[in-house]
Each structure stands twice: as structure tokens, then as C-alpha cells.
Amino acid sequence: MPETERERVTITVLCWIRKPGSEARCCLPPGHHGDHHHWYGAGHWPRRAGETQAS
């Protein structure tokens, strides 16, 4: 597979939305309410309207 192609991975037990400007991802269950949260030092960030794992 060429390096320019990116595979989309869905992790069904985590929200996994990436924090803007960071490599951190949300570690809460999918479909959670309120802010995204990463447990290991990245803190929390606002959830945007219409956001999905594909975002």
C-alpha cells in the first residue's frame, strides 16, 4: 500500500476523536455527552457539533 493512503480504523469501545493540535485522543466511550477527555495528561477539550470517529 502506498504511504500516501491512510486506512481508517474504528475502535468501537472508545470515542477516539483527536484533540486539535495534538496526537491525544478521547478515551471515553463512544457517544458520550460533554467534553472529550484523555486520561494521561492531555486533559479535556470541547466536543464539536456533528463530530464522529471519522472526523
Rank of each mutant, 00 (worst) to 15 (best):
M1E: 04
P2T: 01
P2R: 09
E3C: 12
E3P: 11
T4M: 13
E5W: 15
E5L: 13
E5S: 04
E5H: 13
E5D: 13
R6V: 06
E7C: 12
E7H: 03
E7I: 05
R8A: 08
R8S: 12
I11T: 15
T12V: 11
T12A: 14
T12Q: 10
V13D: 14
C15M: 07
W16I: 09
W16G: 13
I17L: 02
R18Y: 10
R18V: 15
R18A: 08
R18I: 13
K19P: 01
K19V: 06
K19W: 04
P20D: 11
P20T: 02
P20Y: 02
G21K: 01
G21S: 12
G21L: 05
E23R: 11
R25N: 11
R25Q: 08
R25G: 03
C27M: 15
L28W: 12
L28T: 12
L28I: 09
L28F: 09
H32G: 07
H32K: 01
H32P: 04
H32Q: 06
H32I: 10
H32R: 07
H33Q: 15
H33S: 14
H33K: 15
D35G: 00
H37I: 04
H37A: 13
H38D: 07
W39S: 12
W39V: 02
Y40G: 08
Y40C: 13
Y40N: 15
G41N: 05
G41A: 03
G41V: 04
A42E: 01
G43Y: 13
G43S: 06
G43T: 04
H44P: 05
W45F: 06
W45E: 12
P46R: 07
P46Y: 00
P46K: 05
R47K: 14
R47L: 10
R47F: 03
A49D: 09
A49L: 07
A49F: 07
A49N: 13
G50A: 01
G50D: 08
E51Q: 11
E51M: 02
E51S: 03
E51L: 05
T52Q: 08
T52Y: 03
Q53D: 01
Q53R: 03
Q53F: 02
Q53L: 11
A54P: 04
A54W: 14
A54C: 10
A54N: 15
S55A: 01
